[in-house]
């Protein structure tokens, strides 16, 4: 009899699986992408950057690029159409409104920051300490949640105007 219940139990539980790292990864990517989308919505670029397509380049994270491209490509923000590009080299970035730099690619950020600033690019980085290498927004982990910190001074150098909602939600503003 115990066997009958055990068989039923096996059939039942064999379908109950955890999502695992894969789905957790998808969820984390989604959150990251949503953050970047919200950065775009809550930051004002200089007027010269307010025409044409709104370019977002992802450096070194193909999954994030694919996720953002499928969720947001073609959407319009203040009349500008969102366009996404992926690259794995700083030299191929060109002009972009937003550049996301994956952690493994951030070692060259400091030496490229003045060029990026000149191109009026909002740099979003993903590794501790990068606000000091020219990044404007840096992803951090706060209480088991993805959060972000802001360098207001780096933003002013571009110049970019960061909306109050972002300043309020940032874990720190320097």
């Amino acid at each position: 009899m115990k066997r009958i219940l055990q068989i039923a139990l096996f059939i039942l539980f064999s379908s109950a699986m955890a999502w695992g790292q894969g789905a957790a990864g998808d969820a984390n990517l989604k959150v990251k992408g949503m953050f970047v989308y919200n950065f775009i919505k809550n930051i004002e670029w200089p007027s010269a950057q307010k025409t044409g397509d709104f370019k977002v380049t992802v450096l070194g994270d193909k999954d994030l690029y694919q996720m953002m491209n499928s969720n947001y490509a073609g959407k319009e923000i203040n009349g500008q159409k969102l366009v996404f590009n992926y690259t794995d080299s700083f030299s191929e970035i060109g002009t972009a409104h937003v550049l996301y730099v994956a952690p493994e690619y951030s070692s060259d950020l400091a030496k490229n920051s003045s060029k990026l600033r000149k191109n009026k690019t909002l740099v979003v980085s993903d590794k501790g300490g990068l606000l000091y290498d020219g990044s404007v927004i840096n992803f951090v982990v706060n209480n088991n949640k993805l959060a972000f910190e802001i360098s207001k001074s780096n933003a002013e150098l571009v110049p970019l105007t960061i909306g109050p909602a972002l300043l309020k939600m940032a874990t720190s503003v320097i």
Binding site: N28, K30, M34, N38, Y72, M169
Partner: peptide, 23 residues
């Protein structure tokens, strides 16, 4: 598993255009 999957479900069910506070 249940809490784990519920945790992920919340994120996967979010509207990609949710504002930052909702997120």
């Amino acid at each position: 598993y249940l809490y784990h999957n519920l945790s992920i479900d919340i994120i996967l069910a979010m509207d990609p255009e949710d504002d930052i506070l909702t997120m």
